[in-house]
Amino acid sequence: MFSEADIAALMLTLKLAGISTLVLILFGTPLAWWLAKSAWRFKFLIEALVALPLVLPPTVLGFYLLVAFSPQSSIGHLFESVVGQPLAFSFTGLVVGSVIYSLPFVIQPLQNAFIAVGRRPLEVAATLRASPSDRFFSVVVPLARPGFLSAAVLGFAHTLGEFGVVLMIGGNIPGETQVASIAIYEHVESMQLASAHWLSAALLLISFCLLVLVYAANPKARVLRL
């Protein structure tokens, strides 16, 4: 059924998706808030930049990251001299790639949720002497909860299904960068079709359960509204 390497690949995929989602929610929330509230003239430029991974072929993103992460490039060199290990073909590199790749899937639901909250609840809270951080955490976060849920699930699920980027920057190292989608590709390439079937079924089941969970918990929340 599942070889040891297959289970390692599945666990690695879940770990990658989990960490990437955490990073995305942490850094995506302020960005989405700014996008929802800012009146800056050139905001559309940032919005276009955030949406870019939606339309860009993963191989293009992966290729640029491969070049940027290599020890010969300034980014790769800087990272290696600070952290002490190379960014290319490492788990950290995959996290950076996944965060960029899944960015729009987290930012857009959050931005929509923040816009939907509107100004009124915040103004009311302000008249009740709520501090800005209090207003955000006790008013905006509860009201935007479906948005957070959508963002987290979409970010997680999209990272689960990541393939092209990891193929370019991962290097298929078992236990380090060999995620499930890459392991499936390898099984098909080396004609181990039974293993490919099992691993594919596992991914299908995980993805389906995730979505069922979200739709069941929020019958009215429109999760996929991109």
């Binding site: 491969l66 290599s70 020890p71 073909f89 290097g171 298929n172 190292i173 078992p174 390898e186 390439e189």
Partner: peptide, 19 residues
Amino acid sequence: VLLVGSTGKHTAQIQYGLP
């Protein structure tokens, strides 16, 4: 540890530091 892939891809990745 075996890293399976196409030879062309490996060659490109080795030039970018595949360990």
